[in-house]
Write a protein that binds this DNA or RNA. Sequence first.
DNA 1: GAGTTTGAAACT
DNA 2: CAGTTTCAAACTC
Length: 513
Amino acid sequence: MSPKTITLSEPHNTTIQSIPGKKIAISPLKTPSKVTVVSVASPPSNTSQKSVALPVSVALGQQILAVQQSTPASPVKVATSQTTAQNIKPVQSVTVGGVGGSQFKTIIPLATQPNVQQIQVPGSRFHYVRLVTATTASAAGQPSAPNTSSVAAGKPLVVNAGAVRMSVPVIQAQTMKQVAPKPLTSAPQVVTTSQTQQRLIMPATPLPQIQPNFTNLPPGTVLASAPGGSNVGYAVVPAQYVTQLQQSQFVTLASSSSFPASSSIQTQAKLPYNGVSAADTTSRPRKPCNCTKSQCLKLYCDCFANGEFCSNCNCNNCFNNLEHETERLKAIKTCLDRNPEAFKPKIGKGKEGESDRRHSKGCNCKRSGCLKNYCECYEAKIMCSSICKCVGCKNFEESPERKTLMHLADAAEVRVQQQTAAKTKLSSQISDLLMRTTPIISSGGGRLPYTFVTKEVLEATCECLLEQAKRAEQTHQPQEEAERMILEEFGHCLMSIISSAGKAKADCASINC
DNA sequence: GAGTTTGAAACT
DNA sequence: CAGTTTCAAACTC
């Protein structure tokens, strides 16, 4: 059989060359915009090669393994050849065919220790990794996923849009830590990039020389060792996933004879949205959902809509977890079929900061005046725009109602800040006093010294009381209630002073001062 | 905490 | 695409 050449379409002119008895390999050309793919492995006899459209550039270079794609019926296998450590380009995926334009994504087994399977969801930006033991890894791709082929180590895994899986070497969770890329050592590492969307590289074994720029690698990218190199594989996954692993009993799972899709492993796997970092949201605690009927597999569920697994939620009959992977994938596909933008952020990122943020579809509020959190624009703290179809909208720049609301919100915030500051000051004054009055305490008997009630403490106490009075006034409390609140606050202050004095006395006694 | 209101998502 | 139903969050009492 003579070598076949496949020319890849945009964005880079790429050539795949098939040589009988060899794997298909991709070699980078000197010209960055072109990539040559050379077959160096024997494809199955019933495997036909196809034109491959590269949605993004194929990443090549040292130990960067290009991804492979296949249609369910006619798998195409693409592996990489050994290349020199040069310009590493971002890898995303090689899309081959697909039904109705859907995107069948890539699953690539790495060469060794196939105890992690990466699962990439068709048409979405979800990325999962399933952990299996070395003894079960080779079988894991078969029975549970009817459409997956058996996987031999080092050979490309041919899958379709079903329960796609992938084996990659993985390290133990305890050894994971997020560190900046550095010269590689024998210790397993996780490398995070400086991008807002954090990604990780999980080597299984001591690493060879590899110093590419990982910052542009998308989740799911697989970095494999070159033939003849050490048996090392890397999988680039969202940082949240490693958090997930760390939070779960990773080692137990990884070392168990099977991976039961334990609920303990499900947590904050999160989508990178449309180029918008998921890290923005992961820094704050996610609100647990309360879904009862949707099984958390519809966009009603915030967790699902945000590309997260349910974790610590109050939902019933939840399918938004790895235990129900099949159903979840199906639901994701359904949502994407209905709306390809379903998992993209609704609030577009403005070109010049927050002022340009706006709802991608606009709201449709009828009764809330767009001044309640029912309104997605208001909830996102943005103004309604021309694309909104709301009725009686009051969520616009000059709206007096909106201004009033904003003032109230601001005032409330200021009050909280003032009160916090006053309390901090009181604590500070007391602490300061403790430092200065210790000798006096030593002479005291069973009573606490007056010296704690200094001018500063009095001032701080008064500030607390005034803040409480203001709060009572602003919340329109009746006089009795206002007095009660103030007295209560005074009690707190007094207790704080007494407690501090007592503590200081005790401390002094303990050191016999 | 229970019940109501609301608007997005899902469905027809 | 429009109308209706379902759903879960926001809100009120």
